[in-house]
Nucleic acid binder design. Structure first.
Lengths: 229, 229
DNA sequence: ATCATTAGTGTAGTTACAACACGAAGGGAG
DNA sequence: CTCCCTTCGTGTTGTAACTACACTAATGAT
């Protein structure tokens, strides 16, 4: 079945920059393309938007199809519409970025992808299309956003030690933070709940675990509270 | 001539939220639609993206065609792709916001528009499509952005008094600012040049005029300087 | 028992911020 | 010319927030 229009139309796609965090680095999820163009190259997961789904839905669907990830934090980033982004024809892509807990999710390649894999953000392969530009913008946005909104929790397990949280900020902001000042500040925000649990399986003194309290956070947000780190 | 595709495609448009500032209010430029759907309703200027122009180019072209505005500050806002935005068919729109000096630009209606007019931001008519939502997001973005980036100068004439600048911040942030503190802060940023001129045609003591120094601003930006108000 | 590693805590100096009032300049009205 | 009205332009002080910084306690590994 074919579809006719009076004027030519651009193809519309979504692409996702998926960030994850492990004990060392900030990582990004890429897929190896199994189809031309750029067959064999690494690229951001993504694909065509269908007419019966919103842009957000399309992003979630493609992410699930190509990497198996579901229920992640997802936010629109920017729309890229340069004329020569895709060698085949005019393609406009709505880019998203996602934050996932690496521990939670097992990643698997699927549709249109030979494999999916995590790459450290400062050790990336060459990417297909203009995906390097998209990824750079996503990284910048994450750095900017994490400073005044506590979205970083999306990258941590539900229960975490303050050291892990500090490490997250240090990795994303790419600068060291003072332990005592960091603790003071983050605890003063009153968005963490101290749990009656400590870390296990660590070869040293175990740290107290905390969880992020979304309810408190939302209440404070409404009061115009400032979460700057 | 008609165009055929294997899969159905959404139509792609751009819409612009144009902000202007006069002596009282923050204003928005709207056009009265001359065609269905929503004929006779006020709407954001915008239209279809052609295949031989980037999204930014499309936004500038539509803005010029429908309102006569050229060479304005323009920045992508967000892309809206809900299923029922347009009663005719699936239309995805890339929204932009623009800042213009009201004094500089004479506005005139043109293509597809009966007329173009400025509306105070808190005295708006009902709008076509989901344009109220787009406008609300643009307003929020402007408020957020003006606090840490000196984009507000785009709304002022090239030479301005500090009172005008303060008034701009007060209107956008919707709260009064202390005159002395404001002056101290903005002058300490070292992005303004004091001119050897004063206001004319005012019925009271004339204020010293300043201009924004883009070069200084860019130099400081590279040094990671903070422009928070 | 000792060692290695990380947890957890307080203070003092410095800087940034908010609050606040008045004399001087200049145009307009009489 | 004088008076009046409006806006310009300027400093200080108390308070809150930020930075820099070092040691003891806990725990697992050897």
């Amino acid at each position: 079945m074919s579809h006719e229009y009076e004027f030519p139309r651009a193809a519309l796609t979504v692409d996702c920059v998926v960030f994850g965090l492990d004990d060392e680095d900030l990582k990004v999820l890429l897929i190896e393309r199994d189809l031309p163009p750029f067959e064999g190259r690494w690229a951001l997961p993504g694909g065509f938007v269908r007419l019966d789904e919103t842009l957000d839905d399309a992003a979630r669907r493609e992410l699930c199809e190509e990497t198996g990830l579901e229920r992640v934090y997802l936010e629109q980033l920017y729309t890229f519409g340069d004329l020569d982004r895709d060698p085949r024809e005019r393609v406009v892509t709505v880019a998203y970025y996602a934050l996932v807990r690496l521990s939670d999710h097992r990643v698997q390649a699927a549709t249109d992808a030979r494999q999916a894999a995590w790459f450290a953000i400062d050790d990336l392969p060459r990417l297909a299309f203009d995906h390097e530009r998209i990824l750079a913008m996503a990284h910048e946005r994450l750095r900017g956003k994490v400073r005044y909104q506590p979205i970083g929790f999306e990258l941590l397990p539900p229960k975490f030690a303050l050291r892990q949280l500090q490490h997250l900020y240090e990795v994303i902001l790419d600068r060291p933070l003072d332990k005592r000042n960091f603790r003071k500040k983050i605890l003063a925000m009153d968005i963490l709940v101290e749990l009656d649990e400590v870390e296990t399986d660590v070869a040293h003194r175990a740290a107290r675990l905390y969880r992020f309290d979304k309810t408190k956070y939302r209440r404070l947000t409404k009061q115009g509270f400032n979460f700057e780190i």
